[in-house]
């Protein structure tokens, strides 16, 4: 690693009340790379992302983005750099706002001009027809909604995208489209991704390095090739791999 990494998380701890759900997680993601987080349900993957994104301020440890350390309270400029896509495309779009309004909101907040053109361009970038622009979320399919969510994250031109299970609520044909889209966007815009998913195949498809979480700790960090080849050390990783491979063999 030459320059400082885009994301540097060191001994991150998060508690809710007296229950510690993230117990010292560390990882680094170089700029333009994709880091995958997998692990058991409830192991704290979403919690790590929410702490990174600034949604949850009650954490301790060290988080640095683009070389600059960030605290629990973030400046508005931070939100231009880091954006997040949520797990559930049905719950992450405001039910009473049109797609146009949803997409122009970040532009208005950051005082970016040229709203008209940017909204149209971003819609095209995520391959949504211009016709959806003035619809409401409930008039779109799950896949279209997730594209809107990705468009909203992209519109202020961030450098880092935090993806929380971006395809788990979508069907496999749409999943393939979204995964291709994410791969293209990363190449074109040199984005850095942190991708949370419970699907090993999805994570391995997109990410070069993968962290495995269990009970709030990162029990293993390995490369996608190692995972594919079955060179995992931790029993939990091995179990996850066996189950995934077992399902693939039709």
């Amino acid at each position: 690693m030459t320059a400082s990494p885009m994301i540097d998380v060191d001994r991150l701890r998060v508690s809710f009340g007296d229950k510690e759900v993230v117990k010292g997680v560390s990882f680094r993601v170089p700029a333009g790379e994709c880091f995958g987080l997998v692990g058991e349900s409830g192991s704290g993957k979403s919690t790590v992302l929410r702490a990174l994104s600034g949604l949850n301020g009650a954490w301790s440890g060290r988080i640095a983005v683009a070389g600059a350390e960030v605290g629990p309270k973030r400046h508005r400029a931070f939100f231009r750099k880091v954006q997040m896509v949520f797990q559930d495309p049905y719950g992450s779009l405001h039910p009473r706002q049109t797609i146009d309004r949803i997409l122009s909101e970040p532009l208005l907040v950051h005082g970016l001009g040229d709203v008209e053109r940017r909204v149209a361009a971003t819609l095209a970038e995520v391959a949504l027809p211009a016709a959806v622009r003035f619809r409401f979320p409930h008039q779109l399919s799950g896949g279209q909604r997730q594209r809107v969510a990705i468009a909203r994250a992209l519109i202020a031109e961030p450098e880092v995208l935090l993806l929380d299970e971006p395809t788990s609520a979508l069907d496999v044909s749409v999943q393939a489209e979204i995964l291709n889209l994410l791969a293209d966007l990363r190449r074109q815009r040199r984005l850095t991704y942190v991708l949370v998913s419970h699907n090993l195949a999805v994570v391995a498809h997109l990410c070069a390095r993968i962290g495995v979480m269990l009970g709030g700790e990162m029990v293993e960090e390995l490369s996608a090739e190692d995972l594919r080849a079955g060179r995992a050390q931790h029993p939990h990783t091995r179990e996850l791999r066996t189950l995934s491979v077992g399902l693939e063999e039709v």
Binding site: G54, L55, M84, F86, Q87, G91, S92, L93, H110, A149
Partner: peptide, 26 residues
């Protein structure tokens, strides 16, 4: 606590704006 309000917070909007433009209309 819904995700769409969390998404509004992630745009960097001030709390007053969120309450006024996103919560109150609901």
């Amino acid at each position: 606590n819904s995700d769409f309000i969390a998404a509004c917070r992630l745009t960097g909007a001030a709390p007053a704006r969120i309450v006024l433009r996103h919560v109150a209309p609901l």
